[in-house]
């Protein structure tokens, strides 16, 4: 989870843990879920439909994006330029796709003070809810009995505050994480496979979710543990945006 959620874990006391922590900002739960079968799943709240007769307004929340590379030894390095390009490209392409489907879109502006605190809290809460939904709903290996069969998750009605401070009726949260293997890593993978060893590549991971700000319901969630598209380039970002918005209500 977000670094802050467990400060003490940040200080794990040996370099092995340090190494692990460098495997980029890998969201722990998503990383864990790599073991789950099937790499892409999505869900829509039962009976959900956008309000008829007017154009729904979707605000994209500040996303969590890291783009980096993976060394031969598996250590990830974030690349600041790639991350910046990836963020711009993805925000643009996601909006394009939503607008073509008839939505009005905006990006949540940078905030400060109390308003930033509120949005930061909801970004953190979103990650927690998504991780629960992944474990109990999308890949329910041993999910909560009460969560079986129905996609029913909420961030609580208090999230309406986001509308008061600039968001539309819906908030789109997303996460995107890439770690491109360096040539040495590729070579190691090939040699390793030939010798029967396992040097797993680190696939790109992304998820996106839409929250109805009028009641806090998570109305749609799409998680892709092996997502395509090189977000450093516009055409790659377009493909990534298409896959991120898979099964989005109202888009085919």
């Amino acid at each position: 989870m977000a670094a802050l959620t467990d400060l003490r874990r940040l200080f794990t006391h040996c370099l092995l843990a340090l190494l692990a922590s460098f495997v980029l900002a890998t969201n722990a739960a998503v990383a864990n879920s790599l073991v789950y079968a099937g790499s892409e799943r999505s869900a829509v709240q039962e009976g959900f439909a956008f309000p008829a007769g007017k154009q729904p307004k979707i605000t994209i929340m500040r996303p969590e994006i890291f783009v980096g590379e993976q060394s031969s030894g598996g250590l990830a390095r974030v690349n600041a330029d790639w991350t910046k390009a990836g963020k711009e490209n993805l925000l643009f392409e996601l909006q394009q796709r939503l607008q073509k489907a008839g939505f009005s879109t905006s990006v949540m502006p940078e905030l400060s003070g109390e308003n930033e605190t509120i949005t930061a809290e909801y970004r953190a809460l979103f990650k927690i809810v998504v991780n629960s939904a992944i474990e109990n709903d999308l890949w329910p290996a041993d999910g909560l009995p009460t969560k079986k069969g129905e996609f029913d998750w909420s961030l609580g009605p208090g999230i309406a505050k986001l509308s008061e401070i600039g968001a539309g009726e819906f908030a789109l949260f997303f996460y995107s994480h890439d770690s491109f293997p360096l040539p040495g890593r590729r070579a190691l993978e090939l040699v390793g496979i030939a010798k029967g060893f396992d040097a797993p590549e680190q696939p790109s991971v992304g998820y996106a979710g839409l929250v109805d700000l009028r009641n806090g319901k998570l109305v749609w969630l799409n998680v892709n543990l092996r997502i395509d598209g090189d977000v450093r380039k516009p055409e790659g970002a377009r493909e990534r945006a298409r896959q991120l918005l898979n099964d989005f209500p109202g888009i085919n």
């Binding site: 370099l15 340090l18 460098f22 250590l75 190691l188 040699v191 390793g192």
Partner: peptide, 17 residues
């Protein structure tokens, strides 16, 4: 330290083969 770990983990990865 980041660079040191990267260099050594690269070498270790090859050696592990």
């Amino acid at each position: 330290s980041f660079r040191d770990i990267r260099a050594k983990s690269d070498a270790a990865a090859w050696l592990s083969l």
